[in-house]
């Protein structure tokens, strides 16, 4: 049967008439994305090719900001790269393993387990400013509680955030206290594993470790994948924890000068913003995150989405 071809204006009118309520509802989110995310992104992309201080007009179009990071600024930029990647390759696995182990422990049907879950989750509801100040005072090498505790145990005093050799380890230690959020996700995933599988394995005489490696871990691979992707993205963008604890400083010998902190310093850390260079650094970070995310997705053959998953 031949259909009568309608005018485009009529098609659009009918389409809008049918879906207008939906468009009204998504309008705030779409407008928010366009105005507060896409537009600044595009603007920063343009800035990255100019010398731009936000006051005088943009000038000197070219790749100078990108080149600068690998030439004149290489000493400092490479330091930020190494700090950021070191943090990523340690913080992401640490978070995965420790929060998973914590979730396994707190997934038991033991009386009072909910109290422990709440206790482990509590640090997550503390504002980052408050916890940053708390850690700063805790690790004060002169008068902080950490060294008082070590002294009480007869151990030598720690240098914590005051030495380039210990600053990163100390920061990683503080990050452990934010694992309650990850733990909740793991527990939700663990609860979704059918108990029949464990019962069958037990009848077959499978040990605890065998059940862990043959049942639990394969069935939580979607969560591992999810946390891996978000963890890497978050770790590469990290800087706020160190920023608060060190009161905006980069740490001894710039040992905590994250890539994100360098962007912040270039853009807002001085009287005159160097917005062109900051934008170039931000776009390079975006590119690295994008590439790593693509690599993770492309190599994702190990995630188990169920027998019927396509």
């Amino acid at each position: 049967m031949n259909r009568v071809k309608e005018k485009p204006s009529v098609v659009i009118r009918n389409w809008l008439k049918k879906n207008w309520v939906g468009y009204i509802f998504v309008c705030p989110a779409v407008l928010g994305f366009l105005i507060f995310t896409l537009w600044p992104m595009l603007a920063s992309f343009v800035y990255s090719f100019f010398d731009y201080d936000m006051i005088l007009p943009m000038q000197n179009f070219g790749l100078q900001n990108y080149i600068r990071a690998f030439t004149i600024d290489w000493d400092k930029f490479s330091k930020s790269l190494s700090v950021t990647f070191l943090y990523t390759v340690t913080a992401v696995p640490l978070d995965l393993v420790v929060s998973f182990a914590l979730a396994l422990l707190l997934n038991k049907s033991v009386k009072g387990i909910k109290v422990f879950r709440v206790l482990y989750y509590l640090p997550c509801i503390m504002p980052s400013i408050a916890s940053g100040l708390l850690w700063r005072n805790f690790f004060d090498i002169e008068y902080g509680l950490a060294n008082s505790m070590l002294a009480a145990l007869g151990l030598p005093a720690g240098t914590f955030f005051t030495s380039s050799k210990t600053a990163m380890v100390t920061l990683l230690f503080t990050s452990l206290f934010g694992m309650g959020g990850s733990m909740i996700l793991w527990i939700a995933q663990l609860k979704s594993i059918p108990t029949e599988l464990y019962e069958a394995a037990s009848i077959d005489g499978a040990s605890v470790f065998r059940r862990l490696f043959q049942i639990t871990i394969p069935l939580v691979t979607p969560m591992i994948f999810y946390k891996l992707v978000l963890g890497i993205i978050g770790a590469l963008q990290a800087y706020s924890g160190a920023f608060i604890i060190l009161q905006g400083g980069p740490g001894p010998d710039e040992s905590l000068m994250f890539w994100g902190l360098r962007i912040y310093y270039s853009a807002f850390g001085q009287d005159i913003p160097n917005m062109g260079y900051a934008s170039a650094l931000a776009w390079m970070l975006f590119l690295v995150i994008g590439l790593l995310t693509v690599v993770i997705f492309k190599t994702n053959k190990w995630t188990f989405y169920g027998e019927d998953a396509q």
Partner: peptide
Amino acid sequence: NIASLYATNTLQDVVHTGSVTSLARRG
């Protein structure tokens, strides 16, 4: 910072400041 306020047209009429040269140089 003052530069950001100026760039976004939100800088006040009278401004308390400790730095002059870099901002005066840029008008």
